[in-house]
């Protein structure tokens, strides 16, 4: 047992290492995406230009939510994600090359270039996401239902932003999942904003885990974007769902280091805010905790970092090297064959 495990016996340092690797991978992936997205968009920003056109919502700073939940999931568990989906996709084990190719609009992409960054579907990884706020929650309800009907102990997790918790779909879905006692977990990532609207201007209560009592489900709150606390809250929720004890709402206080989308002028936000959040970087925090646990040394962590970055680099290279679809392919796939 490591020092860390002595203090926190329920937490496996090996699993924390896995989380660390995912978080580093996510961070580097998003950093590379900032670069790729900017290509062709300077000196004059034009949303439709460059190798990655359209809207781009990045998850830099929000890594703990994805890593802390996914460390407890298997290939058989289902995840639905919103318009800001890269961290969930990566931690769920979505094919990184095909995902990146999709974002570059290539024919080798998950959706042959038809979906784009907000519409990633990897049935092998049991992952999907979409551009309509809160729409993924009922899909997770359905996946949870299917799992139950099949007699499996698989769970379904819907990730949403705090803004989405004010949509009808959130409330309808939780009532339904509670009513039918489904293995559903809703993770609310509170990054303080829905685009420009601060949480206090959109939400009538302090945090969404408090809403759990309205549906008769369990609620948990993770503060300070803390990876270990997210690990623990998720573990409890997953166990509850797997054991047939019903849904959980987890809200995590997380940090949006970047704009709502790339190119967001962020005039609604205090200039000091982001540097303050960056000073509380969850990756640096977990890194230090791992070193303090004396389970790994600096060199081993660097190996993890190198490996993660290499995978990301390979994915981007694959995307860039791939061909664009033939224009007429636009007409295919309206119906599946």
């Amino acid at each position: 047992m490591t020092k860390f495990e002595e203090k926190q016996p329920s937490v496996s340092v090996d699993k924390l290492m896995w989380m660390y690797e995912q978080m580093v991978k996510i961070r580097y992936y998003e950093d590379q995406m900032v670069e790729a997205y900017t290509e062709g968009k300077s000196p004059v920003f034009n949303i439709g230009e460059g190798p990655v056109p359209g809207e781009m919502h990045l998850a830099t700073g929000q890594e703990p939510a994805a890593a802390g939940m996914m460390v407890h999931l298997t290939k058989d568990d289902t995840v639905t994600a919103p318009h800001r989906p890269h961290h969930h996709a990566i931690a769920k084990g979505v094919d990184l090359k095909k995902m990146t190719a999709e974002i570059f609009g290539k024919e080798t992409g998950l959706g042959k270039g038809k979906g784009g960054h907000m519409h990633l579907f990897d049935p092998q990884a049991k992952f999907s996401c979409g551009g309509i706020v809160a729409a993924g929650i009922p899909h997770a309800v359905g996946a949870a239902m299917a799992n139950k009907m099949k007699g499996k102990d698989w769970v379904a997790v819907a990730f949403i932003g705090e803004g989405a918790a004010n949509a009808g779909a959130f409330h309808e879905s939780l009532n339904l999942a509670a009513l039918w006692n489904l293995p559903l977990i809703v993770v609310v990532e509170d990054n303080s904003y829905g685009i420009s609207v601060p949480k206090k201007s959109s939400t009538s209560i302090e945090s969404n885990d408090l809403r759990a009592s309205a549906y008769g489900v369990a609620g948990a709150y993770v503060k300070d974007n803390d990876p270990v606390a997210m690990y623990k809250a998720s573990e409890e929720a997953v166990n509850r769902a797997r054991n047939g004890q019903g849904p959980t709402i987890i809200e995590i206080e997380t940090f949006r280091f970047l704009g709502h989308f790339q190119g967001d002028p962020e005039l609604y936000r205090d200039k000091e805010e982001v540097p303050g959040l960056r000073a509380r970087d969850p990756i640096m925090k977990l890194r230090q905790q791992l070193l303090d646990a004396e389970h790994v040394n600096e060199k081993e962590l660097e190996e993890i970092e190198t490996r993660a970055k290499q995978q990301v680099d390979e994915a981007y290279q694959f995307a860039r090297d791939s061909d664009y679809p033939k224009p007429e392919a636009a007409l295919d796939d309206v119906f599946t064959s």
Partner: peptide, 14 residues
């Protein structure tokens, strides 16, 4: 032509 609007710009242009 009775398809959802595709993402990739070659497809969308088409």
């Amino acid at each position: 032509p009775d398809v959802p609007i595709p993402y990739s710009h070659m497809l969308e242009d088409f």
